[in-house]
Amino acid sequence: MATGGEESGALSFHPMDQFIVSRLFCSDDAETAVNECTYDIAWYELTNVTLWLALAVLAVFAMLVLGTRNRAVVPSRSQSIGELAYGFIHKMVEDVAGREGLKYFPYIMTLFMFIVMANFLGLIPTSFTTTSHIAVTAVLGFGVFIAVTVLGFVKNGASFLGLFWVSSAPLVLRPILALIEVISYFVRPVSHSIRLAGNLMAGHAVLKVFAGFAQVTAIAPIAIFGVVAIYGLEVLVSFIQAYVFTILTCVYLKDALHPHH
């Protein structure tokens, strides 16, 4: 948006502009000092966040509902992808959280499908990456944290606190370990959400920085090669971060179901 106003010849870097939340169907009136598209957005307004979240929902729908509409015993290609995703998460939940964890499989599948789709949609040039926002990942991370903590107390009662009391350690060390365990427990949702948002934000910002260097003719080939290389890395990161988020959720779920070491 500010590129038009730049002096020609000077480099203009706006790696963070891609993360700005702005209204849909809106044009900024250049006469006023206030940007009408980003100023004072109410909670219910349609924004680029809304658009890309909706596209993620549609992508999940297309992959898991439209792809499997034939219900073929011998699957088509699209159905295989849906079954692959199902089997992947189903096996992960079963392996990490045990058979009792399978009850929560739909929730974990929801998290995984949302994150993976939002990550990959974010890789489309000029798109908006919803999972690069702390607001989004914090809701996911704290949602998991609160759900798992409540579940732990509901399932185990006060004995859930045994999670913090390492009975296999020497008695003298136990209070210190308990303190460390409590701190690490409460840090979980923070690291859980910042890991995801941070990875995506950093990657996308680096992409934009490389793209900015492409404005200089002399280093443009290197910059473009850099963009391609970082893009490849980001494809990997998109999947791995979704995987990491999901498997950590399964680990936390396992702690809630079986709090004793």
């Binding site: 109410a42 909670w43 219900r71 739909p106």
Partner: peptide, 30 residues
């Protein structure tokens, strides 16, 4: 507030799509 509101809407939508349609269907096919 805007992001969180729409995120919750999206997550609920995905959850209902998965738990009502997609997962039972794929599970039964498997």
């Amino acid at each position: 507030d805007n992001q969180i509101f729409w995120l919750v809407v999206a997550l609920l939508a995905i959850y209902f799509i998965l738990s009502r349609i997609a997962l039972p269907r794929i599970g039964s096919v498997l």
